[in-house]
Amino acid sequence: MATQLVTTEEAPRQLAPADRVRNDLGKMADQLKMALPSHVSVDKFQRVTMTAIQTDPDLLNADRRSLFAAITRAAQDGLLPDKREGALVIFTNKVKGQNGERDQYIKAVQWMPMVAGILKKVRQSGEIAGISAHVVYEADDFVHRLGDDESIEHNPPALGTARGKPIGAYAVATLKDGFKIREVMDYGQIERVRAVSKTGQYGPWKDWWDEMARKTVIRRLSKRLPMSTDVEAVINDPATEAAFAEGSAAVMAAPQPLTSAALLGHADPANDGTLAADNPAATEGRPDDEYGEDTGDARRALADDLIARLKRAEILGDITAAERELAAHRDAMPAELVELIDAEIATAKARVGRKA
């Protein structure tokens, strides 16, 4: 009787989630090289990214496509996701069900620049010699003099001395010619920024108020500074704004729904502005940070700001930034304002296209 030999093929070993991400990140080397500035090597960026992912296991369980989109955004900004220059943060995204199906929620990842990263971009731009921001407390000696010779004097008490409660924050930028531009916000102004945030009672505003205050005053100061397009894009990126405005110490639902098409590759959830963040470097979104507590006034002011920016747009990147900012607030904005902005976007594109 013939003997039959039965052979079995050993099933391929399944890679651990971290190893799969590492492999996929390695395949992105060429893409990252094109996005990163010359002073940041691909190897260093990949090492820092993997360290960030391995120290936050939730990132491995989040939507993989949004994870790599967030990594790409970090590379484009020329910043490291080291939780100092910026961070990969998780939010919950609502995916609207279709054909009677229930809505679903997915964990997605968003890139969020932090204070150190924004200041680094500003310094590297060559347009500003230096910039700093500080919080003022009750026990501090603080004097802000206005007039022809504006100045700020800020002397904290001796180390180890209780400084009391925060009473305000300020930022100072020094231009290349030595001229200084200052921005001061008292506690009430900062709290009005907090009041228009949907998550002002929890998340970063509750857990990291000082950092939020610094970011808020920096953003207000930035509107008065000469900046290159890429630096302005980092500071005023709508995805970043939405993440800052919707920040939370826990993963939380985002305010704007995606359709299921987004999960099938027809939309990019990392860029649609429906974000929330878990990070101490959160800052308030630009749309609301100067427009008071009334939501209607805030939306009108945002629309006016976007239209003014579109009228000044000289390159496609300026228009794209405005489009992203509109996307982050489209659902909450009156239809007539959306129509005005959309029309201005079309006009700006035609104008920039003719110049090209």
Rank of each mutant, 00 (worst) to 15 (best):
E323T: 01
V143S: 04
D278W: 15
I152L: 11
A303H: 07
L32A: 05
T49S: 02
T199A: 06
G86F: 07
S228Q: 11
K33R: 03
G130I: 03
Y291E: 08
E344D: 06
E183N: 05
Q124L: 04
T283E: 08
D149P: 05
N23A: 14
V6Y: 07
N61C: 00
D141E: 08
L5C: 07
R65A: 00
L310F: 07
G160Y: 06
D297V: 01
D288R: 14
Q98E: 13
T283M: 06
E314C: 02
D210W: 09
N23G: 11
A267D: 14
Q14T: 04
V136C: 01
Q46A: 04
H154R: 07
D297T: 05
G130Q: 13
I341D: 10
L119R: 15
G147M: 10
I118H: 09
I71A: 01
K355T: 01
V172R: 12
E191K: 03
R224E: 12
V234K: 04
A233E: 12
F91G: 15
Q189N: 01
G117P: 04
W111L: 02
I190A: 00
A162F: 06
A233G: 03
Q256C: 12
V109C: 04
Y105P: 06
A281Q: 14
S151I: 08
T216Q: 14
R145H: 06
M252F: 05
R20L: 12
G130F: 13
E344K: 10
T55Q: 14
G100D: 13
G200M: 05
D19H: 12
I235H: 06
R312Y: 05
I319Y: 10
V89Q: 13
T55V: 02
P81C: 01
G86M: 08
E232G: 10
G265D: 05
I181R: 15
L302A: 11
H134A: 12
A129G: 02
E191F: 01
K176D: 03
E325W: 05
R354E: 06
H266L: 03
T240M: 01
P17W: 09
A69H: 05
